[in-house]
Amino acid sequence: MGYQNRQPPEGINYVSNGWQKDFVLLVVGFFAGLALLIWLAMLALGWSARWIPFSWEQALSRPLQQTVEPDQRLRYLQGLADDLARAGNLKKPMTITVHHQDSDVVNAYASLGGHVFILEGLLDEVKTEQGLAFVLAHEIAHVHHRHPLKATIRQLGFGVMMGLVFGNTDIAQLAGAGGQIAMLNYSRDLEREADAWALAALQKHYGHVDGADALFQWLAEEKADEAPPQWLSSHPDVQARIERLRDISREQGYSLQGKVTPLPEWETASSEAAPPTDR
């Protein structure tokens, strides 16, 4: 009858080994593209911060406005901050508002709108005014360079971008992890930037930078083994930071010797009575 089935050769409708090359190309291309995308996104988002006026930040952070009557200690901190801001030439419309927070954690941070938070633990561990002044100046530097705003924009903008590009897939998670690492890397850059600004402000205010690294000395001694590896940390390695401060001082000709004053005594009663500042 002439009815028969002939077997067509293999490999016409599919390439049996075509996808290995595909895979290598795609993976390499993907990571290169992702790195580029993250880099561009971070740059653009960080850059966009300059078009957001400081008053917007202040409006956003209005709920942080102080409601408690400032006590002696807060007045001292605010005064020191104002002096340092003047010494460091804080950009014009910006203002610093210092808050005190009842927490044992040895830390301080800056938030949107020029709000700087000093934690009780820090005041306990840093015994000298210069040591405290450096931390304060460092946080003021964050405000000066608008780091809290940049970080917020990056965090939000990056999340939105990745969601748009990758949707809800495994790859989005991978990209998110890459973004976090990049974000931490930027964060370390910002810390270094803030350190340099703070050192300059200290030199201007006191005429020397002696005692500036008091907090880092304490961190290096007490918390050395708790530190995460640097690439996973938002702050540079403590030891490296101490050395960097010294290098900057030498380069800029800052005086490393000077009069270090202890922190003034304030009424302990007020510190106990102070209600925890709101967040």
Binding site: D22, L26, T169
Partner: peptide, 13 residues
């Protein structure tokens, strides 16, 4: 591979 491929388009080997 397919998820990666879908970013750039082309043949889904």
């Amino acid at each position: 591979i397919a998820t990666l491929r879908m970013l750039v388009g082309g043949r889904l080997n």
